[in-house]
Design a protein around this nucleic acid. Structure first.
Lengths: 204, 204
DNA sequence: CCGGCAATTCATCACTCGTTGAAATCGTCC
DNA sequence: GGACGATTTCAACGAGTGATGAATTGCCGG
């Protein structure tokens, strides 16, 4: 292919008119492609093509493919403290419900692709190998479970993780029809009691 | 690298003495590497190296990388009917326990790598994209749930899948330490009631 | 109006991938 | 024991990868 947006004539070099934000376009495209194809499967050329830009821009703006991945997927500007606080704010007996609902609504709106990218690439060798653990458990669930003050907080956090990650895989990665299309409330109703039991129930 | 087993001298061509089964060695190596690296990440050269054999043997015995994957991972000689029958044999009230235990013991012994390979490669673009669904749901859980005779069998099967797949991801793919090392009985005790509720409990 | 800086594209490099065909070697049957 | 077929390794190809450096262009301060 000769150009990027046009296959016949060569695209003009130099800055683009209209002050378009190439960096941001690359970040968006990267999240999409990483979510669809995983870290290895996402080629820089495919990402650049989706951003309608030359592949060399990845190196120009992020230094390397790994740098782009770090900024697009792992460097989530997330208010972790606020999230933990919101989860803990309310009846402990309904914490399970808040966790599922928060997870689903967050992923359904903005971060759906981010979770898929994180998980898909967590299964890849490459950067971000253990960031799923750091993110889900170390940063969120373990603090929450500790604050609740139950026994075996780490094992309980792990149990909650299995259920939440399982939902994420089925809904956002594998995209099993019936579950990917299911209503958030329906899933919350069905799953929340199971998670609640992992948090405050008898598991030993 | 010059040879395969020896970096200095060239390995002798022609059949190997002692009637070693190259095909089987390749299948075993393929299951391992596919499980570790996913479909794209597993290179034919890496698989062949683990089987201590030249990469061209993959094409000789299986035609292509995809053929090897199909036979090594997807073509599991599994007694599905027998599995379904064993699950249904016994108290319905303890079906959840049987499902988790069967899943864990099967994966811990032989098929651990197979599940990881199936899931990792299910997240890859490549062959075997929807075989996770066909295997877990269509072939196993949906028939079981239908035989039990509850309402919403498909949705219940989906819920069970989320929990089982989540355990599989955390234990065999992401390998979170605490859960990968956990005792089977401990996990069964903690998780079985949740799955049992998905099967026979109130979820709507 | 012009000089420099930043942004963008192009051409290309070295490397790895899956695949292929030929050469070499072993086992077996007559 | 000699020929033939099956098995194995080797060398190479074409495509695609991430990365790099030069060439080109627009924008902004003087």
């Amino acid at each position: 292919m000769v150009g990027v947006s046009n296959g016949l004539t060569q695209a003009r070099r130099g800055p683009r008119p209209g002050g378009v934000d190439t960096r941001a376009a690359l970040l968006d495209a990267a999240r999409e492609v990483f979510a669809e194809r995983g870290y290895q499967g996402a080629t820089m050329r495919a990402i650049a093509a989706r951003a309608d830009v030359d592949a060399a821009m990845v190196n120009h703006w992020f230094g390397s493919k790994e740098g782009l991945f770090a900024e697009a997927v792992m460097d989530i500007p997330f208010d972790l403290d606020g999230l933990v606080r919101r989860l803990l704010d309310g009846d402990v007996g309904r914490l399970g419900e808040r966790i599922v609902r928060t997870f689903l609504t967050n992923c359904d709106t903005a971060g759906g692709g981010v979770f898929a990218a994180l998980l898909r690439s967590g299964a890849d060798p490459g950067p971000g190998g253990h960031h799923l653990h750091d993110f889900v458990i170390t940063s969120i669930l373990a603090p929450v479970l500790r604050a609740v003050g139950v026994d075996q907080p780490d094992f309980r956090a792990m149990l909650v993780t299995t259920q939440v990650v399982g939902i994420g895989v089925v809904r956002y990665v594998a995209r099993f029809d019936q579950f990917a299309a299911a209503d958030v409330d329906r899933i919350v109703t069905a799953v929340a009691p199971a998670i609640q039991r992992y948090i405050t129930g008898d598991i030993a």
